[in-house]
Design a protein around this nucleic acid. Sequence first.
DNA 1: TATGTTGTGGAACGATCGTTACAGAAAAGG
DNA 2: CCTTTTCTGTAACGATCGTTCCACAACATA
Lengths: 191, 191
Amino acid sequence: MGRPQTFDTADVVRAARATFWEHGYEDASMPRLEVSTGLRRSSLYHAFGSKRGLFDAAVTSYLDEVVRPRLAALTAPDVAPDAVIDYFAGLRAALASPGTVQAESGCLLINAAGAPIGKDPVVRETVAAYRAELRTAVRAGVVAHFPDRSAAEHDRVADLCTALLVSALLLTRVDHPQALANLDAALDLLA
Amino acid sequence: MGRPQTFDTADVVRAARATFWEHGYEDASMPRLEVSTGLRRSSLYHAFGSKRGLFDAAVTSYLDEVVRPRLAALTAPDVAPDAVIDYFAGLRAALASPGTVQAESGCLLINAAGAPIGKDPVVRETVAAYRAELRTAVRAGVVAHFPDRSAAEHDRVADLCTALLVSALLLTRVDHPQALANLDAALDLLA
DNA sequence: TATGTTGTGGAACGATCGTTACAGAAAAGG
DNA sequence: CCTTTTCTGTAACGATCGTTCCACAACATA
């Protein structure tokens, strides 16, 4: 069997995820990743093949452990009438709490969209699929919240809320109050 | 007086602007900037002090020659009723025309927001001010387009259109059809 | 023409990037 | 025990980054 790993893979990916989240792919240097994960290059390369491999693992971890748990109530078979409200209110609270990665850096994938790494075809597709996943979940919440409205109206509100969401996540870094204002605008749309 | 410059500064800044626009600040290396501008490092450093100085000049050029001319009809003292429509339709046409920098890379400043350079305080403030400028212009257009609506409604529609705009510019790189769809959604709001 | 000043070309700088090579450590199986 | 396999630590790799230095070219002025 050979020598066993001295670290928990999920923990290391989470640590790397935080570093990519905070600094972006380009500025998350290997020395930085060594410090944040507590591993040496040799171990990281042995386990993930490359910096990019580690990033891909971080993205998967981000979707599974950050994005989808928060969307859970909107992607379940039965969606509560106020699940969308809870989603936007919960995200707002997360973005408003100082010191957290979310509040400081917004969204790992939205940030990647405009960065150099966003030119990579795989990353491109990942971000596009991520946005589509957000919009599907939001629409399900909108349907549950406005059951009497038409499908066209559901689409319209879902599109607007998703755009406000994307804008909020992008603006988190550069204009924090405005990011919160965008989430408030989404909550107004749902009132 | 010494030896005169052999190049037109505005032309060089425009060339550098296109490079920063396409590749982002981080991946716009000095060799690349030398090729795109047709100048050697020594001339670039002599004229702009640093890569960052050239970037700042490119940003100023971007605002003055790309952003504000397109916003002109919305920032004038008298705003035509359909000026907002024209703005979003014109931007949609620009993003839809293949081969252009706009269509390939969206917006220089929006892209900078999520990239590592977006952590710089000055860039942060520049992007925030840029978004505010967009929102002010859009609101003026909304007021002219819906003169009978309330101020609160003006704010609401302006906020939504601005978010759709920001989202569209961000998504241009990663999901081009969706970027156009966001601009269409803004046009629907104004119909 | 001689001098002073400014712009350009070319080469090199030190620093840092992501990646790799290799020896030793820690387990399982013979 | 010894061998095999897997993981880790150290050190280095070549490449590229942004920046600087310096000699020379091109102008204005005296």
